[in-house]
Amino acid sequence: MRTLPSRLPLVQAPMVGSLSPLAIAVSEAGGLGSLACAALSPAQVREQIGAIRAQTSAPFNVNFFCHTRPAPDDEAQAKWQALLAPYYKEAGLDLSAARTGPGRAPFDEAMCGVIEETRPAVVSFHFGLPDETLLARVRHTGAMIVSSATTVEEARWLEERGVDAIIAQGVEAGGHRGMFLTKDIHAQPGLFALLPQIVDAVSLPVIAAGAIADGRGIAAAFALGASAVQIGTAYMLTPQAGRSGIHRAALRAARDDMTRLTNLYTGRPARGLMTRFMREQGPMNETAPAFPMATGAVDPLRAAFENEGNGDFSVLWSGEAAALAREEDAGALTRQLWEDALKCASSLPSSMASCV
């Protein structure tokens, strides 16, 4: 059974917009830094991996999406643009600025070539796994292969296909749901219900993900059988996270009841802080085109409003524990999270502490 190659069992969640500086800081501190690659070209992925390796010899993770490209649907795009037309008018934009192309690319031949060339220690996937031919090539590089599960059924599916570890993603987690065997977001369990059931169902290491943002959450996840934890939102206010001023301000003001699952920004359910767009048109809206085709038409609106300092259409991905995010160096935060987790474990009754 393979374990994480990092010194600490802490994985920094891969987050679009957070590039090499965050992965470097976390990896240097002993955690497993991650690079989100779904919004990058193969050349950019190669460049970012090079930047990480220039600053640290520690292992790191690269993450890819595994969705199926949807067929072109002119009718769906027309309905989507009609819904957005009043906002375009408000922003002073011509609707012709709306793009119809995808905003995220799935793992493919070109990306696999970059993995074979650069050989990162860990390669993780979201929305299942790539086809078996590509997966076999990744496995041949020696990389540890990890993917996300939002149900026990998905965890078993991943184990059957030979992954080395499974991320149990609770419904509290920020960003895109990793779901791939179901579309029913209402059936998604919270982490502390999901985690022990996945641990019982598979023989692989399980990484807990979903609103874990401090030592208490880390210790609790280990008590429920996790072998490691994945943390995203807690890093959002670090200087290395690359978040906009609008996003940072929203995170500072966040409360426990301010996130929703929405498909408005990409076409697939993802958790983020509430915006005007989400209040008026969703958060879930059947008009949104299939993932990731919603993105192209929303991006010009987001940019136009953000240029005026307005976050009405901003993508504010966040987990439910945003209020626990800390404004400190990502490396220092990584070390502090683990120290706090150990303190929490040591304060438990001996019969309980032995589980952590």
Rank of each mutant, 00 (worst) to 15 (best):
M1L: 14
V11R: 04
V11G: 10
P14Y: 06
P14Q: 07
G17K: 05
S20L: 01
L22I: 10
I24Q: 09
I24Y: 08
G30H: 06
G31K: 08
S34I: 03
L35H: 03
S41D: 10
R46G: 05
R53K: 13
Q55W: 02
T56Q: 00
A58S: 09
P59H: 02
A71W: 09
L84K: 01
A85F: 01
P86D: 00
Y88C: 02
P102V: 13
A110P: 05
G113T: 06
V114H: 00
I115D: 00
E116Q: 10
E116N: 02
R119S: 02
P120G: 00
V123A: 01
F125W: 07
F127D: 05
L129C: 03
L129I: 02
L134C: 07
V138K: 01
T141Y: 09
I145A: 09
I145G: 11
T151E: 02
A155I: 07
A155G: 11
E159I: 10
E160Y: 09
E160P: 12
R161S: 04
V163F: 03
E172L: 04
E172G: 05
H176M: 11
G178E: 07
M179A: 14
P196F: 13
V199W: 11
V202L: 11
V202E: 10
P205V: 09
I207A: 11
I207Y: 13
A208Y: 09
A208I: 09
D214P: 11
G215W: 06
G217K: 04
M236E: 13
T238G: 12
T238N: 10
G242W: 10
R243K: 13
R243A: 15
S244I: 09
R248L: 11
A250R: 15
R252A: 11
A254M: 03
D257W: 14
F277R: 00
Q281H: 14
E286K: 13
A288K: 02
P289I: 00
M293S: 12
D299L: 15
A303K: 15
A303G: 06
A304R: 08
F305D: 02
E306H: 03
D312E: 02
S314G: 11
R335S: 14
D340T: 09
L348K: 13
P349W: 11
A353N: 13
S354F: 14
V356S: 15
V356H: 11
